[in-house]
Design a protein around this nucleic acid. Structure first.
Lengths: 221, 221
DNA sequence: AACCGCTTGTGAACGCAGGAACAAAGTCGC
DNA sequence: GCGACTTTGTTCCTGCGTTCACAAGCGGTT
């Protein structure tokens, strides 16, 4: 059977997605091959780390030359499963939800929104990126009809858990949550949390620490 | 001077922000004290890890009882610097930028947008959350006048680097970047990258891996 | 006043990610 | 054809984060 199942670490998968985007840009620019150093610089990572990440895919470069852009791009795309189109549903069509629905980058990465849902009647019926906004009552029906396995939650925090429950009940197995609450989901369902304000908070703390350190130096000097 | 500078790890800081949000919710609900187990469950982390995170703040709980909600909340808020108002500027008022400018959660966390900027003339002049959208030409002026040290980039990828350059030149020291490009900034400037499509890609990969594993079991059985 | 149960805080071990250094391999020049 | 240079792929190592497990401490009870 499959002789080796390497089990690529999650951190590497995240970086592979970044490499893929950089490689796509290089390929569009007509570039034919690239070295690990240059690719690492464009992706903002260490060259050695990049080579280690790529080693999980097996040998895919030529020593003394570098990597062939198109080949490497296709190899990563294959591992990440970009070639297959993944049906996704998106719940909560506020500003953030609209931004996600409109984002062109998803389409080229294998994601296809097959349903946009919102609870507010005034939003239902609007069209965003060619898709109509539907009432949440149709959620189960659409998930069943389209076999969507990925759900994105961009609702206010207070309804996120109930939306999560409905998504998992309808058969969604992977959930990306932008609402600032920790969701509980049944086993076998992956939940990833993205908290925009936490990112800002960490950034502010680092800046504050840096400022405090500078003050300390000044005082101790 | 300061006898101990504990140097809180970055991963802990991110979780502290989550605890702070949970504690604020509990306090609003009239809750007076809470145990590490319950708080960890609400935050979606391990209880032992939570206690270790909190240990960086010094002892702040009572053994046998738990943590006093209001006290712990204020302690964390003090460490994260939430009490002080931090002026921020936001560049790129598309759907994502509008969502960020509108998000009420930032204000209660010590962040205050003092400038919204966009290059598109049709967006300039609109008011979002009480702030007018200004042309990017005024960026340096506003940063100087408000002493903003945090900049948020929500522009398309192709202009993100030039916006970053202008922000750093104007004196911004911390940058949160939502554009899907790796930014290069001078030393002393912190850049944090949030890539929405990468999160979705990782989620899809994990789901694909899980599906493949199930198939393998089936085949080998 | 002493005991018991509960919860915090900390110490140690484990596993993982990141970085540097080195060997293998292929190409270009002579 | 051979040598030197370049770049990959791998190995080792260091440090960090996470988890488990236990000792310390406080409140309630008898």
């Amino acid at each position: 059977m499959s002789p080796a199942r390497p089990r690529i670490p999650e951190a590497t998968v995240a970086r592979l997605a970044v490499y893929l985007r950089v490689l796509a840009g290089l390929a569009d620019g007509g570039r034919r091959n690239v070295s690990s150093g240059e690719l690492a610089s464009a992706a903002g990572v260490n060259p050695a780390g990049l080579r280690k990440d790529l080693s999980h895919l097996g040998p895919c470069g030529v020593r003394g030359v570098g990597y062939e852009v198109a080949t490497l791009r296709d190899r990563i795309a294959g591992v990440l499963g970009v070639e297959q189109s993944r049906p996704c549903v998106l719940v909560g069509i506020g500003n953030l939800g609209t931004a996600l629905a409109d984002y062109a980058g998803f389409g080229s990465r294998g994601f296809r929104f097959v349903g946009l849902f919102d609870a507010a009647p005034e939003r239902v019926g609007r069209r965003i990126g060619g898709q109509p906004v539907r009432p949440v009552a149709e959620l189960d029906e659409v998930v069943a009809a389209t076999a969507a396995t990925i759900g994105v939650i961009a609702t206010p925090a207070d309804v996120a858990q109930s939306v999560c429950d409905r998504l998992t009940a309808a058969g969604v197995r992977s959930i990306l949550n932008f609402a600032p609450v920790a969701l509980t989901a049944p086993a076998g369902v992956d939940v990833r949390q993205v908290d925009l304000s936490v990112e800002l908070q960490v950034l502010a703390f680092l800046g504050q620490q840096r400022g405090a350190a500078a003050t300390t130096v000044e005082v101790t000097a």
